[in-house]
């Protein structure tokens, strides 16, 4: 079977409910390269998932436990052969060896075995942006086979995670009470990306303080905001993921955010923005290698120029040869 036939067969099987085929397709997306591009081309006419939710926050705040709870909320509803809800749980890879221990699934055992649910663990695989490329394709694949809701869990500590979270229509930032968490969140850039805040582990002391700190920062205008008049003010909600307290409230607030997006035309705008972002990012990736190559070739002795002048020269050169061989975007 040719690669294209194999992909088509997997897509057909996945649309008929094969978990194995869906698992395979996500590996193709994850692996990148030509096969992933070929797969992504098949997504052009397919619907995206109805809703993509991101959950981001420091390690240990309870993202996976929250995710499991939200999945349970999202899984209720009419069931077909295809899972209604999928989770993509991202963990870091070891920077030294490239390997990873992916443990998020441990917290999703209860829901992960339900037929309405599909859980996939993904490793960061280094800082080359591979995962940031793979996750949007994976989400399109999930949508195309009929998954309604996709939840992406990721540690919000680095550039890549913030890139990944860009794929979500609705972003929930999770934190736990404890001094400085809100400040940490602000530093990590979470305030700007989040549409909702879950102050998890509300069974622990310090919840009220954490909620107040966050509210103050939001009032000070540090939030994601929106340009079209009726701005969305991110709500701050205490939760106890381990026993489910506050989960209903969090889920309805998330749904309210989605409705707000739809009502204000924001959903399409967010998604368009996202595609532009992805295009821009990938274009930069494509050019980056050639810029590096061209820079390495420069004979600095030939002319006395400032670095800025050299850069302009490199950029002009690279753009002039944008259709050079070996750079096809597939």
């Amino acid at each position: 079977m040719s690669r294209d036939d194999a992909l088509d067969a997997l897509l057909t099987d996945a649309r008929h409910g094969s978990r194995r085929a869906l698992g395979r397709l996500l590996s193709v997306a994850e692996r990148g390269g030509d096969a992933a591009s070929a797969l992504d081309r098949r997504m052009l006419d397919a619907p995206p998932p109805l809703w993509t939710v991101g959950i981001v926050g420091a390690p240990g705040v309870g993202k996976s436990t929250l995710t499991a709870r939200l999945v349970a909320a999202a899984a209720d509803g009419p069931t077909g052969p295809v899972p209604r809800v999928a989770v993509i749980a991202v963990d870091p890879s070891s920077p030294l060896t490239g390997g990873a221990i992916l443990g998020d699934r441990i917290r999703m055992q209860g829901v992960g075995s339900r037929p309405e649910v599909f859980v996939r663990s993904m490793a960061h695989r280094g800082d080359d942006g591979g995962l940031a490329r793979a996750v949007p394709i994976a989400i399109r694949v999930l949508g195309s086979v009929g998954v309604a809701t996709v939840i992406v869990e990721t540690v919000g500590v680095g550039q890549i995670e913030l890139e990944i979270i860009h794929v979500a229509d609705t972003v929930i930032a999770a934190m736990s009470p404890g001094w400085g968490d809100a400040i940490q969140a602000a530093k990590a850039g979470l305030l700007e990306v989040a549409d909702l805040f879950a102050v998890n582990k509300a069974d622990r002391p310090g919840v009220a303080d954490a909620v107040r700190d966050l509210e103050q920062m939001l009032d000070a205008g540090l939030a994601r905001g929106s340009g079209d008049g009726r701005a969305w003010r991110p709500p701050v909600l205490p939760t106890v993921a381990t026993d489910g307290t506050g989960i209903d409230g969090l889920w309805s607030a998330a749904e309210a955010h989605r409705e707000w997006l739809v009502a204000t035309g924001g959903l399409q705008r967010v998604r368009d923005e996202r595609i532009r972002h992805e295009i821009g990012r990938r274009a930069k990736d494509l050019l980056a290698g050639r810029i590096d190559a061209r820079t390495a070739e420069l004979d600095l002795a030939t002319a006395r120029q400032t670095p800025g002048q050299w850069a302009a020269l490199v950029a002009a050169d690279v753009c002039a040869h944008a259709d050079a061989p070996g750079t096809s975007a597939a």
Partner: peptide
């Protein structure tokens, strides 16, 4: 009381 799931290893 509910049940308990171990902490992740990583």
């Amino acid at each position: 009381f509910g049940g308990y799931t171990e902490a992740a290893v990583a």
